[in-house]
Each structure stands twice: as C-alpha cells, then as structure tokens.
Design a protein around this nucleic acid. Structure first.
Ligand SMILES: NC(=O)c1ccc[n+]([C@@H]2O[C@H](COP(=O)([O-])OP(=O)(O)OC[C@H]3O[C@@H](n4cnc5c(N)ncnc54)[C@H](O)[C@@H]3O)[C@@H](O)[C@H]2O)c1
Ligand SMILES: NC(=O)c1ccc[n+]([C@@H]2O[C@H](COP(=O)([O-])OP(=O)(O)OC[C@H]3O[C@@H](n4cnc5c(N)ncnc54)[C@H](O)[C@@H]3O)[C@@H](O)[C@H]2O)c1
Lengths: 216, 216
DNA sequence: TTCACACTGTTACAAAAATCACAGCGAATA
DNA sequence: TATTCGCTGTGATTTTTGTAACAGTGTGAA
C-alpha cells in the first residue's frame, strides 16, 4: 500500500469523529458529499482518502456508517490499547487529562507524572500521579509509548531526551518550544499562542478582503 | 504581493518565536541554515519564506536578528493591538487565559465570558469575566474580532453563530466539534484527542518501521 | 587588486496534493 | 427489458508546495 500522507491521516481521524457523532439507526448510510459538508473537505477528497485505506462503498447507498467507522478504526487504531502518559499536571495537564480520559477505546492514559511532591503518589482525575523519579520504571512497566508534555518550556528539552531514552515514540508537546530529538520520535507541537496569532492574522485578512477560501 | 500559503504563515510565526528566544547581543546575526536547524525546516524553505515577505539579509552576515524579527512583526502583526476574548472559563479556558495573557505585544485578551454566575462579574486571572448576556455589548465596546472557544461541544455551534453575528472574524475552537459558518469567519480547530490519536498513529508507525521522515 | 569563500535571492525543477471528470454500476421506474 | 439516475472509484490533470541549483555579492586573505 502506498504511503498515506500525514494530512490524509488527520482527515481520516476527523472523519471518524464526525461519523461517530452520527446515529446509525437514524442514518445507516452516508454519501461522500454529505461527509464533505460535515467535514469541510471536498467529496472527491473524501472518496480518495477512503480509497487510500481500501474502503469501498456502494454507488447506490453510499457508505455504510457502521462499516466505515469499523474500517477507520482498523486503520487508525492499534490492535492493543495504546498507553499514554501525561507529564506535568498543572492547569493545562489536568484539563487535558480530564478531557482525554476514556474518550477512545484504544487510547488510555495510564499514568501522570509531576515533580511537585504535593501532586505525586495519589490518584488525580482517575489516574495515578507518579513522582518524576519513577518515570523510566513506570514507562517500562506500563508499556507507555506516547507522552503528552505539559511542563514549562525550560524543562521540555531535557525531559524529551529523557523519555526518548526511556522508549517513548510519540510526543504531543504543549510547551512553547521546539524539541530536538532523533528522528525516531514523532513530535507534534501545539503551541496555543501560535494558534492565536494565526487566527488573528487570518481574521484581519478577512476583515480587509471580506472572505476566506480555505477552511481548515 | 502574491498570496502566501497558510502553512507558510505558520512557519513565519514559528520563526519569530524561535528568533525571539535568542539573545541578539550574543548573536546579532543568523544564517538560514541555523534557523533551519532550530525550526526543523530546510534552509531553502526559510530563504523562500523570507523572500515572500520581502525581507533581505546579507550574503555575508546572514540575517540580522533584530531586523528580521522587526520585519516578521510587521508582517504578522496588525498595527493596532488585536483584542481577543475567551468564552468558557472552565479548566481549559483558565489554562489558556493564564498562558496567553501578556505574551504578545499586539494581542491582548480583553474579556472572558461564562454562563456560570459563580464566575461572572469578577476579575479572573487578570481579565474581567462577563456574563454571556453581555456578549454582544462587550464585543462591540471592546472591538473584539477574535475569540477562543472553550465551551462544551453541544453549545459550540450556537455560540459560534452568535459571535459571528456579533462581528467576530476568527475563532480558535477547542470544542471537539466542527463549526458550520459562513466563510467570512476563519476557524481553527484544535481538538486534543485528535492530536493524541495522530501521535499514537505515527508512534506506532515508527515502532514498526524504525524512523520517520517528516517532522512537523 | 585579485581571489576564494560562504552565504543569499531567485529561478528552474520535482514532488506532492487536490481537483476534475468520467466510466461503471445497481436500483428504481416504466 | 430498457432507460434513467446519482453515486462511487479512479486515471488524468491542475495546482500547490517544496527542493535544488546557481548566479550574484560583500568580505577578508594574500
Ligand atoms: N496554560 C496553558 O494553557 C498552556 C497553553 C499552552 C502551553 N502551555 C505550556 O504548557 C506548560 C504547562 O502549562 P500550565 O499552565 O499547566 O503550567 P503550570 O505551572 O500550571 O503546570 C506545570 C506543571 O508541570 C510540573 N512540572 C514542572 N517541571 C516539571 C518536570 N521537569 N517534570 C515533571 N513535572 C514538572 C509542575 O509541577 C506543574 O505541576 C507550560 O510550558 C506552558 O507554557 C500552557
Ligand atoms: N479540558 C480539556 O483539556 C479540553 C481539551 C480539548 C477540548 N476541550 C473542550 O473544551 C471545552 C471546555 O473544556 P473544560 O475542560 O474547560 O470544561 P469545563 O466544564 O471545565 O468548562 C466549561 C466552561 O464553559 C462554561 N460554559 C458552558 N456553556 C457555556 C456557554 N454557552 N456560554 C458560556 N460559557 C459556557 C461553563 O460554565 C464552564 O465554565 C469542552 O468542549 C471540552 O470538550 C477540553
């Protein structure tokens, strides 16, 4: 199978979220143009994305909702549950933990870490918070490969190197700094202030020009 | 000037963040390949992006740090401060507010809104929190064009339509739902669980294949 | 003064991504 | 049974995005 581009993966994940929010008993099938309206992408784009994962619909009925979600699950998810940890249970870390827990069948937040002794060695928001000294031990024990980083920027690089050595393969980084790592770790940066700046930029553009072509 | 693609805007904003974190007295100039290392993009990409905004460096010294940041400011920022509001001062909203306030000269969070009377009519984290009934009034009074949405998904669409009518031109949406609006509003969606799924997917890929080509 | 050097700016090229457009299909209709 | 219809799947095409390559440039060494 040909390499599926990163952007297409993002779209597929979005399609799934949209489809899961629909009720299959109301609406057993969906056409590409309907999903297009719901997602903001073109129907051709959607057909092609689904082609990429080898899913086929019926030219008459469209796509079976249950069926398509199942195919997306198969493509996006791992067989086994994937174990995730959050490092840094500050304001942001707690918000993320609270939001993400139990939201997906195949993703489970199995541990959190903090360096503040007031927070460690107790269950916070349903997840045990460990001291940072137990990091390597717990990562190994609980078979964690993905980390959500929500610690201050100054600490992020050091921590990233440390968890990389401990076997982490994916980092969702909320600290406002780039991480410099070997390329056998996938890093996704989510700096909120950059997002605000981007929105501010394009909102101004709209104000001046009166419209925008692309919706993300 | 030719249309600069959305991705290029994101890169330019990132360049600025990186450059601002450097000390111009240590290092008055920077070469494209150095910024490449710091940002993870190629040096050719960087030269081209800077060309797009009409910035020129010296073939001998490279780019003057101060100068380049100034040019980026001019390109990215508006002349006037842009006024931003946060709607929904829950866990996430407070974290965002706390993080974003006073971080950029040209972006100011001038109001927050919540429907919970316990939170309204007081200053929270340095910003006045208004009741949701004052929304239109305050948006107009304070000349707000950009909103950060951090309310539950079920309420997001209705609220989005309401603020659109009130004159908002850009929405940074943290609710896990798509917003359906006229295309004279720029919407940037930031669903964290989708981000986790993406990282989980690529981390698995790395585990299987041993490396990754693209760093975001 | 000449030359080598290491960079930039820019054009030419390549790759990737999105869109178009249409053949093919099964159901519904008559 | 024949015909129409609106959809999917997919090759062809266009558009967008990124990369490579190199001429041009100021500096400092000789
Ligand atoms: N608050 C936001 O909305 C927001 C948004 C984007 C990015 N960020 C970034 O996310 C990070 C956290 O933000 P926050 O608002 O939660 O801050 P916070 O100060 O509330 O929380 C930081 C937490 O990390 C812990 N910590 C610090 N260093 C650590 C280390 N080395 N190992 C383990 N734990 C450590 C602290 O004990 C604290 O609990 C910061 O980098 C911030 O800039 C925050
Ligand atoms: N917590 C997270 O990390 C996280 C991450 C991603 C997305 N989200 C989403 O962001 C939103 C907020 O998350 P949270 O954890 O802060 O939830 P929360 O319940 O702590 O906060 C929600 C806040 O919004 C207010 N609110 C609700 N409806 C409103 C309305 N119509 N107008 C004004 N205010 C209203 C509530 O009073 C509350 O203060 C939710 O949609 C959540 O799914 C949260």
């Amino acid at each position: 199978m040909k390499q599926i581009p990163e952007k297409a993966i993002e779209r597929l994940i979005l399609y799934r979220r949209i489809l899961m929010s629909l009720n299959p008993s109301d609406r057993p099938n969906i056409f590409s143009h309907e999903l297009a309206t719901l997602s903001g992408f073109s129907s051709a784009q959607i057909r092609r994305d689904l082609m990429a994962i080898g899913y086929s619909g019926s030219p008459v009925k469209g796509y079976s909702l249950n069926n398509l979600v199942e195919s997306l699950n198969e493509f996006i998810d791992s067989e086994e549950k994937q174990h995730v940890a959050i490092i840094g249970l500050g304001q942001l870390g707690r918000a993320i933990l609270n939001y993400c827990k139990n939201r997906r069948k195949k993703i489970e937040i199995v541990a959190s870490f903090d360096k503040d002794p007031q927070k460690t060695d107790q269950v916070i928001l349903g997840t045990h918070c460990y001291g940072i000294d137990k990091l390597e031990k717990i990562i190994k024990e609980k078979n964690i490969r993905v980390v959500i980083l929500a610690i201050p920027a100054e600490e992020a690089q050091e921590m990233a190197e440390r968890i990389m050595k401990a076997g982490i393969r994916g980092i969702l980084n909320y600290a406002p700094t780039n991480l410099y790592l070997d390329n056998d770790v996938f890093v996704e940066n989510r700096d909120m202030i950059l997002a605000v700046e981007k929105v501010a930029y394009f909102s101004r553009k709209i104000d001046k020009e009166g419209f925008v072509e692309s919706l993300s």
